[in-house]
């Protein structure tokens, strides 16, 4: 469409070279501030990280010293804890992202129904996102506490057995996924809701006339139309999720064992606790590369689905 527009511009007016030049350069004026800010802020840290990952890092001056080749990368790739954190991150993403998407889409559909209080309900859904991660983590730790927490108390009220939500190796990651889902599903809800509200109402009405019930309308009419929105919400959420660790940090500290140690938390601990900046940098580089590759695949996939 933009190409057509440009062609139209060229043919309809007397083509002056200056005008052409402006057409070529104008877009860059728009992206320049963003590019300048991002490059200024990110280029040196990225360079520093890359350099640190390839050097013998001197903690006493906080700077990369001599060249070390790919030694740190080799160590990282042989590190059981690194691979364990990759597995934990993958498990967390595979559980949390689909769950949040499914819940988010369903709830968005539900609250898209107009009734007198619907606007207030929609606005209230934003609240879980607002709670500062440190507080959210501590808050859930208290709620899930086996001794004073409400969750186990409610469980026992309905005849269940108390559960060690955060102390049990098998449950801890599930608990983390629950907390994360509570926190970020609202984000999906709001984006999808926005999508639903702005959908072309005609196909839905047509389906109604044809006698489709609400479930059929949702599955066969609305959902396909929403596909681009869902993918876009997914992309933003996915890039937030791979660097998540603040909640885990306060709720479990990565434990028990390394049951909840996600990659970003391992990078944090390696850098700030073990003061091994070179290894943390190598892991950061690997993580950014992986994020880039997957994001690229997702975008490709989304284009493919749309066609």
């Amino acid at each position: 469409m933009t190409r057509l527009e440009a062609l139209g511009g060229q043919t309809s007016k007397v083509t002056a070279p200056r005008r052409n030049l402006r057409r070529v350069f104008e877009p860059y004026v728009f992206i320049l501030p963003t590019v300048i800010i991002l490059i200024t802020l990110l280029i040196y840290p990225l360079f520093y990280t890359l350099q640190a990952s390839l050097s013998n890092f001197d903690t006493f001056t906080f700077s990369p010293a001599t060249f070390a080749g790919f030694r740190h990368y080799e160590r990282v790739l042989q590190d059981n804890n690194f691979w364990s954190s990759v597995r934990v991150t993958a498990a967390y993403l595979l559980a949390a992202l689909p769950l949040q998407l499914a819940l988010g889409v369903s709830i968005a559909f539900l609250i898209s129904v107009q009734w007198p209080g619907s606007k207030i309900v929609r606005a209230l859904f934003i609240i879980p996102m607002v709670v500062t991660p440190v507080v959210a983590g501590s808050m859930w730790k208290m709620l899930l506490d086996p001794l004073w927490g409400y969750v186990n108390y409610l469980l026992t009220l309905i005849g269940g057995k108390p559960v060690l939500w955060l102390a049990d190796t098998n449950l801890a990651l599930i608990s983390v996924v629950i907390i994360d889902t509570w926190r970020w599903t609202p984000f999906i809800i709001l984006i999808i809701l926005a999508g639903i509200v702005s959908l072309d109402p005609e196909p839905v009405e047509a389906a109604k006339v044809d006698g489709a019930n609400w479930l059929q309308r949702f599955v066969y009419v609305i959902l396909p139309m929403l596909r681009p929105v869902i993918l876009s919400a997914f992309l933003v959420r996915w890039l937030g999720a791979i660097k998540m660790f603040d909640i885990i940090y306060t709720a479990t500290g990565g434990g028990p064992g390394n049951a909840t140690e996600v990659i970003n938390m391992y990078i944090y601990d390696t850098a700030f606790r073990s003061l091994s900046f070179e290894r943390a940098s190598a892991m950061s580089v690997l993580m950014v590369l992986a994020a880039f590759a997957f994001t690229f695949l997702f975008i490709r996939f989304s284009h493919w689905v749309e066609r």
Binding site: P146, L147, P162, L164, L166, A167, T252, G253, P256
Partner: peptide, 12 residues
């Protein structure tokens, strides 16, 4: 210890 003690650190 009380239930959940295996995850206790400073505050708990």
């Amino acid at each position: 210890g009380p239930p959940g003690v295996s995850a206790y650190t400073f505050t708990d």
